[in-house]
Amino acid sequence: MQVLLDLFITFAKIGAITFGGGYAMLPILQREVVEKKQWVTNEDVMDYYAIGQTTPGIIAINTATFIGQKTKGTFGGIAATLGVVFPSLIIISIIAYFLNAVSDSALLSSAFSGIRVSVYILILQAVLKLWKKAVIDRVGLIIFTIVFLLAVITSYSPVYFVVFAGVLGVISFRFLNKAVK
């Protein structure tokens, strides 16, 4: 019960300070769940993001469910998910109620022009942390480069890239294992 409550509160905190969806959640997730609570590792987070982008549902929710499940089974998954949506429910309901007062605020839009910068700089920082664990050899570097370029230039769904990388991973993993033997 203690852990479930902890999961709910931690993910509510993450939901409350994430601006801009699943990708923007990554730096905060690393901080809270990997470094502070040590429920999962950076490798786990990469796996969850890969799966979270390929399976139905939005990435932030899928990742929260995964981490909760890993920490405390099915109920852990539910607790983490409810936690991450809880702040949205409250904040958005309030805003939807008073919308007109908020949307025209020049002060708020200036504040967000600053927040936007912090969001991508934080994502950059988070990617650099993952990089050391993800790109461990030449195959990793090749996959990273191809997927990065295609994802920036084209507008195909990430599903294709993830499937492509998974297949390539299986093939080269087999090949490398044989080479070692």
Binding site: A50, G140, T145, V147, A151, V162, F173
Partner: peptide, 19 residues
């Protein structure tokens, strides 16, 4: 093997979103 390929791809997708 699948995750061996997925991790760099996952990182690349996040990097692309940030970019």
């Amino acid at each position: 093997g699948a995750f061996y390929g997925l991790r760099p791809a996952s990182t690349a997708l996040i990097a692309a979103a940030g970019f």
